[in-house]
Design a protein around this nucleic acid. Structure first.
Lengths: 223, 223
DNA sequence: CTTAAATTCCCAATAAAAAGGGATTTTAAT
DNA sequence: ATTAAAATCCCTTTTTATTGGGAATTTAAG
């Protein structure tokens, strides 16, 4: 089985205190940007490159200046952090992406790491934690804030359910109250097909029936 | 170990004019507190009283100093903002509570307002918006940031559904995958009764079937 | 004490979902 | 070209949910 992410082999960056770590932040919450900015303001090893509040302006900014670390919110107005992370890592492999998130978005940890992120921090991180995380990240390490690590463990049982594109479509329609017949009509397939998808969904999510299916799916942000 | 709360070290009231609005913030996200602080730092009409990062320390702080406005996150580690708001309004009716929230927590607007809050702002508010909101609030007005107002309108159709205690129990069991027969056994009532509750739930939430019921209920945080 | 809301119970017919097989065609990756 | 995964389709039986009526008891609030 493939790991959801892999450690970078490049560990050539030493922990040189002479070279400041340049940081760019992407987040659409003005307060978060301000908060991080003020957290890092007094850190001499950190160089504040700037901020973008969406994926597009982030990519634009990167064209003129590539920072060591990109602090990235996973929910952005014009793209998912996951997609942006993939794109950035493809265009600028040297950038370390550090995901910034809230407690409610822990379900995306795997996808974010698979997209090439170097770690995952909760937004209520302290100045010390953040600085340490930045230093670890630029030396090639993977970092998770304690709460993330803990939450990942707790959620381990229910995570990693993979449903297909079609199943997701069917799932959404089920949750919307459509019957198999209606879904079949909407998707231009037979009722049998919809029944099969439903059967597979129940099996994949280990749900006893539709009600449980919808609840579990929503818990796991599949809807 | 971080202190649970802090008072401003700067106690020189020299430059603050007599009509300054005193503000206390309760939020467990360090960044949000920092963000707000830096937003309000340069506003002369605003006096920063301090911050608490949980409900308990907020109540403790209020014993020594009651601000004009209490900026409050609705999700706190040791209590819900809704409960804290109720408590505060009962103990200190003169305080205006202004809820601070993220887009994903709009479902609580009603409950927060019912608890006595004076308004609801998204955390990505700008300095200008925030200052204006604070001024309106102390004059007794109710304020919503534009996005909240918009979202409320969108959600208007599905908001304000009141279900009974028993219905809520049944709902939870339904979402858990139990059948009517199972629920009946668990609650020591007849299947007919469960069927009736289910019927009423479908009707109250305007759901076509169980799937839609569970989704709508979860959207409205009824589960 | 009244009254409204909540909770409880019943029946019967119909519609839909769940379970249990199985099978074929597309699609995408190596 | 091969192969595994995804998507499609079919059938039958059993179990549940949904609908559409009623009606009798508790509870809680004024």
């Amino acid at each position: 089985m493939k790991p959801a992410f892999s450690l970078p082999t490049d560990t050539s960056f030493g922990n040189s205190n002479s070279m400041a770590i340049s940081v760019l932040i992407v987040d659409d919450h003005y307060m978060v940007v301000e908060g991080i900015h003020s957290l890092l303001q007094n850190e001499e090893q950190i160089e504040w490159v700037g901020h973008a509040n969406n994926a597009a302006s982030c990519l634009a900014l990167l064209q003129s200046r590539v920072p060591d670390v990109l602090l990235m919110d996973i929910s952005l107005p014009d793209a998912s952090g996951i997609d942006l992370c993939k794109q950035v890592k493809q265009l600028y492999p040297a950038v370390f992406v550090l995901a910034l998130t809230t407690f409610s978005q822990l379900n995306y940890v795997d996808q974010m790491m698979a997209a090439g992120a170097s770690g995952y921090l909760l937004k209520n991180v302290s100045a010390r934690e953040l600085t340490e995380a930045l230093q670890k990240v630029v030396s090639g390490k993977i970092v998770f804030s304690d709460e993330v690590a803990k939450a990942m463990h707790v959620q381990a049982a229910n995570r990693g359910v993979v449903i297909t594109r079609r199943e997701k479509e069917v799932l959404a329609l089920i949750a919307n109250g459509q019957t198999n017949q209606e879904i079949a009509t909407m998707l231009y397939v037979s009722v049998s097909t919809v029944e099969t998808h439903r059967k597979n969904l129940l099996q994949k999510l280990q749900a006893k029936n539709t009600a449980a299916l919808v609840k579990l799916a929503m818990d796991q942000k599949l809807i």
